[in-house]
Design a protein around this nucleic acid. Structure first.
Lengths: 103, 103
DNA sequence: CAATAATATGTCATATCTGATATATTATCA
DNA sequence: TGATAATATATCAGATATGACATATTATTG
């Protein structure tokens, strides 16, 4: 899936804000990255709303602080699967997810 | 995540229709399985709506027919990540996803 | 009823993701 | 300011998901 393109962009200082098919990203790849960022932002929002630190969330998830940081950054090494499981662990429902994705 | 519980259920003839915290599934696990089945069903619907066979979809995804079958079955060996990427490959937008998840 | 297209199931080597760890950077506050 | 809490970044061994393949089962159609 060549997630490194985005990483490369960022390293080059490009700050992928929202929706960047900029260089070389197929529409699916763009949609994938956007989706990941949407979920990543939502995860951070929800964690903070529950007054949890990354360390505390990591404990709840049986994960590590560094991975939580990567999740919230939408890092290429994090799958949608992990992101969504983390949201579910914060009590996010399927309906909540729909609202997160809705325009 | 012990996805095998559900597999076990099904093998025991339990047909996990919708929402089975039945035996031993935590709320998150139940939500995860439900979500997976929602996406799995949607994938099948969309594939059929576009008159594609599993083989044809597999080609488009650079995957295999057997994996598409597993996706549509919500098999434990399939991640939400792959399911969602497959939906995106069928032209599903973030907004579409929201509708798929909405009650 | 074949024949064959479509889908399902099982296995496995490899690729990718993950938790852990170490360490760096950036708040926060006394 | 310095101390320290919170977050970010890098690396890697082990875990998990993946595509490929073989083969079985179930439509479909002639």
């Amino acid at each position: 899936m060549d997630e490194n393109k985005r990483k490369a962009l960022e390293e080059a200082g490009w700050r992928v804000g929202s929706a960047d098919e900029f260089l070389e990203l197929t529409p699916e790849e763009t949609a994938y990255v956007e989706l990941k960022l949407t979920l990543a932002n939502s995860l951070r929002d929800r964690r903070q709303a529950q007054h949890l630190t990354q360390v505390e969330l990591a404990q709840r998830l049986q994960s590590s602080q560094s991975r939580v940081a990567k999740m919230e950054a939408g890092d290429p090494s994090v799958s949608l699967d992990l992101l969504i499981r983390s949201l579910l662990a914060l009590g996010t429902t399927q309906e909540d997810l729909a609202l997160i994705l809705a325009p």
